[in-house]
């Protein structure tokens, strides 16, 4: 990358330099990077407005004329809504479970002094080294023996379990940083430690909770391997499974696949646009350790 050394250097005279227009080179490079990132996505969305014959005749062309039939077809005739519902239930359940279990465990690890505390923390962080992918076969067998196959729980419980280590690693320092004085003040007012958790810690740590919640939600919403194995029942399929099935069932309906794929990625894109700050902020916290 070549960037001119002048131009955007912060002015020495001010504490925080004002936001200025960058030089053309900066914009040129930024535009190029952004184009590479979203060109395929735009292609898929626009392609959904063409017909399959149009696409076959000229794979790289623009819609002419624009047709809305593909999107209408996916929204009315496919299992799109059912799958979106399943994805939402599983992702919300996972998020709730991760946040509740994670905050309880992290609270104990952050605010109680007891023998074995560090051992317990290490025990949880060990999970960061356990790849979810490697455990998938025995996990399937265990869920089968527990009669949980083909239920929301079969996806939610393992997802909660595998999200816990990172959640605890992110939450613990955050909860530990809440000033001791607040806890003492609460104690003087007659509030026990649980009251302190409920009345003071939870409201204060909302940014961190939102962060771990979003991370868990996105991971669950996008998950493929676990649902693929444990959700054989088509009526329980999540969106990723639905997209994959649609594309392998209607291989000749390219326009339909493009439309289905666009609609499936829309929620993630919208969600990310609104939660970008939290996701970045959360990762920032994770980087700091």
């Amino acid at each position: 990358m070549t960037v001119a050394a002048n131009g955007v250097l912060p002015r020495p005279s001010r504490r925080r330099p004002p936001v200025t227009w960058g030089n053309p080179l900066t914009y040129g490079l930024a535009l190029a990077v952004a184009a590479v990132s979203i060109a395929p996505v735009v292609y898929v969305i626009v392609g959904g407005f063409r017909t399959t014959p149009q696409i076959v005749a000229d794979p790289a062309g623009l819609p002419d004329p624009w047709v809305f039939d593909n999107y209408a077809r996916v929204l009315t005739q496919s299992d799109f809504w059912g799958q979106a519902f399943n994805s939402a239930v599983i992702a919300l359940g996972t998020t709730l479970g991760v946040v509740v279990l994670g905050v309880c465990a992290a609270f104990v690890l952050a605010r109680y002094t007891f023998r074995g505390r560090e051992a317990l923390y290490t025990f949880f962080t060990l999970g960061l080294l356990f790849p979810a992918g490697a455990a998938i076969l025995p996990l399937y067998l265990m869920l089968r023996d527990l009669n949980l196959i083909n239920s929301y729980y079969a996806v939610m419980l393992p997802q909660i379990a595998f999200a816990l280590p990172l959640t605890i690693v992110i939450l613990r320092p955050f909860l530990a940083a809440i000033p001791r004085e607040l806890e003492d003040a609460a104690a003087i007012d007659g509030t026990g430690r649980l009251g302190f958790l409920w009345l003071i810690v939870l409201p204060l740590s909302r940014p961190a909770l939102v962060t771990v919640g979003i991370l868990a939600f996105v991971a669950s919403w996008n998950a493929f391997l676990l649902p693929l194995l444990v959700l054989g029942d088509v009526s329980l399929h999540t969106l990723p499974l639905g997209v994959q099935n649609f594309s392998s069932q209607y291989t000749s309906d390219t326009a339909g696949i493009l439309a289905f794929t666009s609609l499936a990625m829309l929620p993630a894109l919208l969600f990310f646009t609104f939660a970008e700050k939290q996701i970045v902020g959360g990762l920032q916290g994770a980087v700091k350790g």
Partner: peptide, 18 residues
């Protein structure tokens, strides 16, 4: 920044089919 992060947010399956 938002545009550059887009591929990371998309589900792996969506990316694969795309």
């Amino acid at each position: 920044r938002l545009l550059v992060f887009v591929p990371y947010v998309l589900a792996e399956v969506t990316v694969g089919i795309m």
